[in-house]
């Protein structure tokens, strides 16, 4: 028998009671810089948790700790109730979708090869990969004929959609999104945010979403984790956030102006 933690009875993937992701007293430092300090957070299954904070507050590092692109200096990160350093790192990552700002598409692969890469290295048969690619393109609102194009032939919004499709390819339970819509123009960003909400209503993935844009956070998040200087300030729902008396949250709301009520009534549009 393997040594197990006190909550071992709940350590079953898919168990509703286990948080999908859990940070336990995590710290991370590079040389003499404390990037993250005493970080504790639970992400529930099926929620969209937004990490909000200014540049350098440690949001991206927090995200990368989940799929072990970054290893913590101390503390533990649990994915589906299990420490994420207990599994082989490539297996861990293939079970977690990852979307980054400038999409990170492989410039020498067509859309189809980009989206189908993880299924391919997981050994899926060719016809199943093709069917899956078409299904995903449809899901993210792209026409099927786009599958033979190269990333440079796409617009920014289309590239980002392909990035989302690629992250969903092997149907992971968890999706990590690092400022996925940050480089888009406001109208395209608005489209993609709306589509993301629709998608999430259907798929119920566990999403960790990094942004510095409060409007985006209020719109897509089920909860918002506010970070400042490597520390978690507070975790609030969007409705709580706009009314919060927390000085950092209030500062954020002030910085974005007074016309934010609409954002708190998100989904009404």
């Amino acid at each position: 028998m393997k040594a197990s933690s006190p909550v071992c009875w709940a350590d079953m993937p898919g168990d509703r009671a286990t948080p999908a992701i859990e940070f336990r007293d995590v710290s991370f430092r590079v040389e003499n810089t404390q990037v993250l300090c005493g970080f504790n957070l639970q992400v529930a299954r099926g929620e969209t948790l937004v990490l909000l904070g200014r540049s350098g507050s440690g949001k991206t590092t927090t995200l990368k700790l989940v799929n072990r692109l970054v290893a913590p200096t101390s503390g533990e990160i649990r994915v589906n109730g299990r420490p994420n350093d207990g599994v082989e790192v490539t297996r861990l990552r293939r079970g977690i979708g990852y979307v980054i700002q400038d999409s990170g598409l492989f410039p020498h692969f067509t859309v189809e090869k980009n989206v189908g890469l993880v299924p391919k290295i997981e050994g899926w048969p060719q016809d199943r990969i093709q069917a899956r690619v078409q299904e995903l393109l449809h899901l993210v609102g792209l026409p099927p004929e786009i599958s033979t194009r190269y990333p440079r032939q796409l617009s920014g919004g289309q590239r980002q959609r392909v990035g989302v499709a690629r992250a969903l390819a092997a149907d992971p339970e968890i999706l990590l999104m690092d400022e996925p819509f940050g480089a888009l123009d406001p109208l395209t960003r608005d489209d993609l945010q709306r589509e993301f909400l629709l998608l999430q209503r259907r798929l119920h993935k566990t999403v960790v979403f990094v942004t510095h844009d409060l409007r985006e956070a209020l719109r897509v998040g089920s909860r918002i984790a506010l970070m400042e200087a490597g520390k978690l300030v507070t975790v609030l729902t969007p409705e709580e956030f706009v009314k919060s008396s927390d000085p950092w949250a209030a500062a954020y709301v002030r910085a974005f102006g007074d016309g934010l009520d609409w954002a708190a009534r998100r989904g009404a549009s």
Binding site: R93, Y98, I100, F106, V118
Partner: peptide, 12 residues
């Protein structure tokens, strides 16, 4: 960014 995406997707 491309390398990081690849690593994040679980390429060896």
């Amino acid at each position: 960014a491309v390398l990081e995406a690849g690593r994040g997707m679980g390429l060896t």
